[in-house]
Every structure is written in C-alpha cells, then in structure tokens.
Design a protein around this nucleic acid. Structure first.
Lengths: 196, 196
DNA sequence: TAAAGCGGAATGAACGTTCATTCCGGTGGG
DNA sequence: CCCACCGGAATGAACGTTCATTCCGCTTTA
C-alpha cells in the first residue's frame, strides 16, 4: 500500500493512529476508525486488505518519520559524544511532540505484530539494520578511537535508548515534566553508561 | 479475591498467566483458560467477577513475587553500589527465570489496565510507593554521603531499570544470551549512569 | 452545449464468527 | 435425601469482513 498520496487513505491512517494509540488495537473497531476518518466502513477495505495490514502500514509510516527526526542536526564530523547527545535529544523531542505516535509504537512492539518485525530487523542484516538504529550505530562504531565500552550491540542499545523510552513514558503519564535541561542531563547520563 | 489458598483458583490464575503471556489478553478466551486449568467455564466466574478482575488478580500476585525476589541478598549494611548491583542482578534473574511473568507484566503495563495502576502508585503515596521500587529507593536515598546524581526520582528509576527491562526483552526474544557476566556488566553500566 | 452513458470509487446493512457471561441440570459429600 | 458446588451448553452482544447497491465525475454523442 504505497498510496500515501491519497487523501482518503491518509485520513484512515491518521484516524486509526489516533484511536489505536489511546484505546489499543483490539479495543478499536473498524467502524470507529471509519467514523473518525469520515469514510464508510467498506472504503477502508479498498485501501487495506484487512485490519492487520492497516496497522502495519501505520507502523511503516511512523518508522520513516522517526528515522527522519533522529537525523536532524547530526554532523558526522563532530565528536561522538556530541552526536550521541544530539541523537537522544532528537529522539525524546520527537516522541514527546508526537505522543500518539509514541503510544502506537509502544503498543506495536509489545504485541505479536511487532515482535517478529523486531527479530527480523536485528537478525537479518548483520544485526544492526533497524532503521532507527542505523545512525546511532554509525556514530558509536565508526569513530576512530575506542570511546565506548566493549559490549554487545543490544546492550549498548539498551543502555542508550532504554532510559529515554522510560522517561518519555513517564512524561506522557504526567509523572514528570521533561524539559530541555532535564533531557540534556538524561542524555549525558546515558553517555556515562556506555563511555569507557 | 483473596482465595489464593484455593487450589482451583490457583489453577485458573496459573493457566491464565501462561496463556495471556504468550497470546495476549484479547487473544485468550475464557474458554481456553478453563480448558487449560481443567475447570469449567462457569467455575471461573465463581472466583472472579469478570475477566478484568482475573487479570488484575494475576498482576497483584506477580507484583508480590517480584518484590520478594528483589529483596534477596540485599544487606543494608553494605555499600550502596553493592546493594544496587545486587538489586539489578535479582531483577534480571527473576525476569529471565520467569519469562511468562515478565511477558504478562509487560503487557499489563502497556495496556489500559496497567496505566492507571501505575499512575496511582507513583502519585498517591508521595511519589515513590511502587512496591517494586521501594527497596531500590531506600538503597540510593538513605545512604549517608551523596553518591548518586541529583536527579528526579523517575529519572534515576529510568536510568537504573530501563536498560535491564530492554535487555531481558532482547534475551527472551533470542537476540542475545544474557548470562551472569553480562548481567554484571549491565548492572555496572547502570551504576555508571547514576553515580556522581 | 446539454444530455445520456459509463466505470470505478464509496457505502453501510447483513453475515458469520467469536467471545464474555449466564444459567440450569447434574453430582458428590454430609 | 439435600444442598452446595460445578460444568459446559446456551445466549446475545460485538466484531471483522463482504458485497449488492449507490454515487459521482468524466466522456461521448447528438
């Protein structure tokens, strides 16, 4: 389904994103998506084979946007530390500014839908082809001197991204106000975890 | 429902845990739970008002077990660093040895069921009454000298637990083999993130 | 230019399935 | 014999999906 240029298709995906992010996959009937999108139920099946395909298409879209957002302002000529901090700032900023996308992605990866996708991404292309991971890995593994601990990639990944995901979740739950200085401190702390 | 002493009640909860952890809440019919537990469908409604109550009861049980597992071998007279490392070892060990419990809890907290529970716990009792958080906070905030960064509690929480949760997930997905030495390194890295 | 015709997009009522919940006939211990 | 408990068929609501029908904009024709 590459009909992203289509207005109606776009409206369906947007409506589904909004509703699913709040209610969850199974609690969001097709009929409700249709109503919110301002289309007939049947029209949804003109663009997507079934509900699953709709969900996957939304994920694909969000993944692309996330990848773009992460790349902003990252300059390969700068020190790895600076690039890393900028990356985490981009990540937390994007997720906070697009809470529905965050909630959707969280649900997606904690469901049978996403688990398999994740496996594929990690295992197939040499263990590091997850789109949202690419720039990050380049930053840390392409630098000349040894500046980060010698640990398996998934562990670096967990140390760098895990806390950010947690903090964004807390922020969206209203448990803490995650502002710029705090994000900066968060990024520096994650750096402390992986630097030698 | 405090009928944990009841055999049949226990069988129902265990069966539900196993199935829900693998299939998800909505993909697990009551009828299947009944079959696996070796009881009739109607009997489930003798012990639990509805499906939701069953889910919540299971969560309650797992929460208690987790709390117990975290406390093992933690000695308040030892240095904060050692207590902290032990705590993370306990946490990762428990989750890895009880993958179904981990999967259940992950689903629980990423669903409308758990979100509200989490809010309650954090906000009601002065912001730190989450059972699984109690021993941890004591370790870090009750020590005499300043040994960890001055950061909001949720952030310390995220830096300490976020990576562990991520790693356990990767381990259970088969992306990495999380053995004792690796867990040790993980714990030390988390310590690096929060220590001054 | 106006009217008629055409084709694909859109629609939503209807269908079959699945599920949580109820209910009642059976059963075993006292 | 009685009663408290149990099981699983019965129930009705809700869902995803389908498809006969409608709608609409464009083309063709007079």
């Amino acid at each position: 389904m590459d009909k992203l240029q289509n207005d109606k298709c776009c409206a369906i995906m947007t409506a589904a994103l909004d509703l699913v992010a709040v209610q969850g996959f199974h609690a969001t009937p097709i009929s409700q998506i249709a109503k919110q999108a301002g289309v007939g139920v049947g029209s949804i099946y003109r663009y997507f084979a079934d509900k699953d395909e709709l969900i996957h298409a939304i994920h694909e879209r969000l993944d692309g946007r996330l990848f773009q957002a992460l790349s902003v302002g990252i300059d390969a000529s700068q020190p790895a530390h600076d690039q890393f901090v900028q990356l985490l700032i981009n990540l937390s900023g994007h997720l906070i500014n697009n809470p529905l996308e965050f909630k959707f992605l969280e649900q997606y990866f904690n469901s049978p839908y996403g688990i398999e996708k994740m496996r594929e991404k990690f295992l197939e292309e040499g263990g590091s082809s997850c789109e949202t991971e690419k720039p990050f890995l380049n930053i840390l593994f392409n630098s000349k001197g040894k500046i980060i601990k010698t640990l398996p990639k998934p562990m670096i990944h967990a140390l760098a991204f895990g806390p950010v995901i947690f903090m964004v979740r807390d922020h969206l739950a209203g448990l803490i106000e995650l502002d710029a200085p705090l994000i900066q401190q968060l990024a520096e702390s994650c750096w402390d975890a992986i630097k030698i």
